[in-house]
Design a protein around this nucleic acid. Sequence first.
DNA 1: GAAATATGAATGAACG
DNA 2: CGTTCATTCATATTTC
Lengths: 176, 176
Amino acid sequence: GHKIKMTGRQRWTPTPVQLQILERIFDQGIGTPSKQKIKDVTEELVQHGQIAEHNVYNWFQNRRARSKKKQHVGVGSSNNNNGEPEVETETETLNEKRKRPESLLVLPDGNNNNDIGTTTTTTSPRPEDLCFQSPEMSSDLHLLGVLSNLRDEHLVGEMGLSESYNLYDHVEDYGM
Amino acid sequence: GHKIKMTGRQRWTPTPVQLQILERIFDQGIGTPSKQKIKDVTEELVQHGQIAEHNVYNWFQNRRARSKKKQHVGVGSSNNNNGEPEVETETETLNEKRKRPESLLVLPDGNNNNDIGTTTTTTSPRPEDLCFQSPEMSSDLHLLGVLSNLRDEHLVGEMGLSESYNLYDHVEDYGM
DNA sequence: GAAATATGAATGAACG
DNA sequence: CGTTCATTCATATTTC
């Protein structure tokens, strides 16, 4: 086999135009677009590329969630001098910050081997059978597990996170 | 909206076995299990991993709510007659689709594995605004993709469109 | 080519 | 119960 692994095409990627429109709408202050709005937006966006309503929905959801999280920075944090890089999802404080210069730079020479996209299947070592997973744990595992084949088979019911569970003060007494 | 953040800890993740059981029960036609049922189910599920009654409850609720608005993926609005001959042959390649590898327990069955599948979508990859890009594709196609010189963000010019979201449970069902 | 990051998608939990 | 939020996961993309 060679590059016949084109099973891809799973994740939708907004086109620049679509992104512009989406951002514009999002910027208008509407946090939670209604179904009708979604439809409307989708209708317009579909003219600029393939897209579905759920894509729009997801986009707004993600956008909103992300905007919320990226707020608190390292303020007043006395600790954290040089402990761990804390590989979280917070990279920058600004919103817009992406670029893709290489992909566009095509050499006129014609000898540009842009042969990336090989079968790079970085298997994510996600704990399969564990029940309660800690966020930081999975994050680290992501990176560590790539190289090593550490397939820690977490035994079911062997995790030590069975205790931290009575914190939810919501305990909805599911009726009936 | 003011969600309480229960010390942001772990989110319960059903083990394959638990999932199986849950699905089986759900499939039996009981839409809204009574408290007793929940208890019973929990009793059984807890033997296969950490779980609580509210987890079961939530699961059923989500499942039910999800099953309702699931079925239609509003895509394919763009008429595509031709453009790119979608050359793909995922037949001889190892589909490294480890979406949810849950093969480690004494799971006698394993039907809860969802994978992409058929992609019978012959969408027209317009070089102007493409949406779904294939992971394995980055060569001369880049030249074709006109790629607008907008600013940042992805100016992708790949191709490959489809709607291969046909898992067992998809559809976001954005309401409101 | 692998690591790191960005971000779309899946799902459990919560609100009204 | 329907809808929305929050967190995680998967994958595309970018960087080293």
